[in-house]
Nucleic acid binder design. Structure first.
Lengths: 197, 197
DNA sequence: GATATTATTGACAGATCGTTCAAGTATTGA
DNA sequence: TCAATACTTGAACGATCTGTCAATAATATC
């Protein structure tokens, strides 16, 4: 099944334009980013933006989904990798420490969006909650395996612990915005690592 | 020394108006809150607002300082109270668990502001960083006392642990916005409590 | 009571917001 | 070649934004 497209072909790469939009929303937030600014940064005309993505909010939703695919999914894959569940968790801690200070300017689009919208936009809230649950579930699965394999005490509660990790992720993204050196984030993660042992 | 004020006295309570402004910024963020909306909510005319507070950004700075005084300072006082440092930390954990779900709609004005502004507004960034350091220092002092009193192992690193707690505070405020029941937050805090023992 | 000072009120300026209309352009299928 | 379709360009829309001007009202000091 292949739908033939009639009409003038678009002159820009939809995926690349979406990535540019994601970057801008990521660093500035939704409200502070104007459509004209998006057009400039995406290299797309105003009308083309509306034709292709609907409106500003729809574009933001797509940007958020793109963020999930390129930024959050890799972390979930690490947690879901075969082998030691505990090692997977530690690998995520490594990733957090290695990334400290690098993307300090933007933080995390998911955390920023939760802070910006809260429950004001139900549609967005549902998506954000689903993303958060995805992170929680990945940690929980890894921690359950760790416990079942004897890497964690039997009394460990993977679900509650997973929620701590998911919470920590949001906190790190937030304080990371004020921490260009990355020391604050690295110290926090190192503490978490030691508490886990 | 008492300065006599000539001229027509203002008809509203400056402190109460500021509290209203704080509440609105708290629940909606800076960009999403308009001056007209602020006037309505504060019960103050437009020109009176500008006369009294300068402009929108100056009003926001005052609102942030007010937030620090009424929301963050009490937590710092708990940590600084005499007696067991570890007990003080646990009391803060109690406060977080008790408050879970209550102020879910708004989260934390400090965390929201870090997410909204990042390092875009240097003046605000400095203030936010100072607030974060205040929290960190209070935790560190309590944890140092706890370690010195044998409530924590000698190998414990209060500074790094304090940064974990400060990070956790931001994370809890963030995920709390999507967690009206408060269960997520309570689970995360309970995990932290157990790891600490 | 006269004057200086400050607060309130309502209108409004200038810019920017998100969105759409209209006209022109490039491609496909007949 | 011609109609149909989709994208691009540029102007424009109405609404809303932050901030200010000008006039009026209420207080303190002289």
């Amino acid at each position: 099944m292949f739908v033939v497209m009639a009409g003038r072909p678009r002159e820009f790469d939809r995926g690349k334009a979406l990535k540019q939009a994601m970057d801008l929303f990521w660093s500035q937030g939704y409200e502070a980013t104007g459509v004209a600014e998006l057009c400039d940064h995406m290299g797309v005309g105003r009308q083309s933006l509306y034709n292709t993505f609907g409106d500003k909010q729809a574009l933001f939703v797509e940007a958020l989904e793109h963020y999930r695919d390129v930024q959050i999914a890799p972390m979930i894959e690490v947690l879901s990798a075969p082998g030691s569940g505990l090692a997977n968790v530690h690998q995520v801690l490594d990733m957090w420490q290695d990334g400290a200070g690098k993307q300090a300017k933007a933080g995390c689009l998911m955390a920023n969006s939760i802070a910006e919208f809260g429950i004001r936009e139900p549609k967005l809230s549902r998506r954000l909650r689903a993303m958060l649950c995805g992170v929680e579930d990945a940690f929980r699965a890894a921690l359950e395996r760790a416990r079942d394999d004897g890497e964690l005490p039997d009394a460990a509660e993977p679900r509650k612990l997973a929620r701590l990790f998911a919470t920590l992720a949001q906190g790190l993204a937030t304080v990371g915005r004020l921490d260009p050196s990355g020391m604050f984030v690295r110290d926090a993660v190192e503490s978490m690592r030691r508490l886990l042992q």
